[in-house]
């Protein structure tokens, strides 16, 4: 039978998990679903952690992200909603707010990168952000993405290549305005 001390210790540990990772999990959820669903899933992710506190590994973030991902997937399976490009861009902008005192150059950079990210496929986008934003190793990120480490490396490589092209060469972006081609005709 558990004691009040056990309960207090468990609550303390859950609070520590929340303090360390809630913001990161929330940002991850904002990239993947709407704010309402993200709010629900965030609390439920940590409720799962509470129930499975003894199973939560160290580091805990990859485990929490897998739980959050599975909850979102099941939610989406019910809702069957599709996000447009604008939705994706809005989700990315919301999940990574620009600091208030950010220089103009960073704002421009952010705009280019987020637009590029929005044009990536969902799996490629997730691959690169799990590493670049969530700070996971490729092996941990592969667990979160639900694929093998080898598969994840392929996704990550492809995502980096495509994002570099999309962010730095606007003409490569589908639908982007192109410069007029030089004419060969002579008068």
């Amino acid at each position: 039978m558990s004691t009040p001390d056990d309960a207090a210790e468990r609550r303390e540990r859950l609070s520590a998990l929340w303090s360390a990772h809630a913001v990161r999990v929330q940002a991850y959820l904002w990239r993947r679903t709407d704010p309402d669903t993200a709010q629900d899933v965030l609390s439920e992710t940590f409720l799962v952690a509470w129930r499975r506190l003894d199973d939560v590994p160290d580091p805990a973030l990859p485990w929490l992200l897998v739980v959050a991902r599975n909850l979102v997937r099941n939610a989406h399976r019910a809702a069957r909603r599709r996000r447009t490009l604008d939705d994706e861009l809005a989700a990315l902008e919301a999940s990574a707010p620009l600091p208030e005192a950010a220089p103009e150059a960073l704002a421009v950079e952010r705009d280019a990168l987020l637009r590029g990210l929005a044009r990536l496929g969902e799996r490629e986008r997730e691959a690169i952000l799990l590493v670049a934003w969530d700070g996971l190793t490729p092996a941990d990120a592969a667990d979160v993405a639900g694929c093998s480490t080898a598969t994840f490396h392929v996704r990550l490589h492809r995502a980096r290549r495509r994002l570099a092209a999309l962010a730095d060469n606007p003409a490569d972006r589908p639908g982007a305005p192109r410069s007029p081609a030089p004419s060969r005709r002579t008068a």
Binding site: V23, R24, A27, A94, S95, E109, I128, L129, A132
Partner: peptide, 19 residues
């Protein structure tokens, strides 16, 4: 690209009220 993205990594909650 990795370095540029890392500079944009969210460090604060996207919505503290919802958090």
């Amino acid at each position: 690209v990795d370095e540029r993205l890392a500079r944009l990594a969210p460090t604060t909650s996207p919505d503290p009220e919802r958090l």
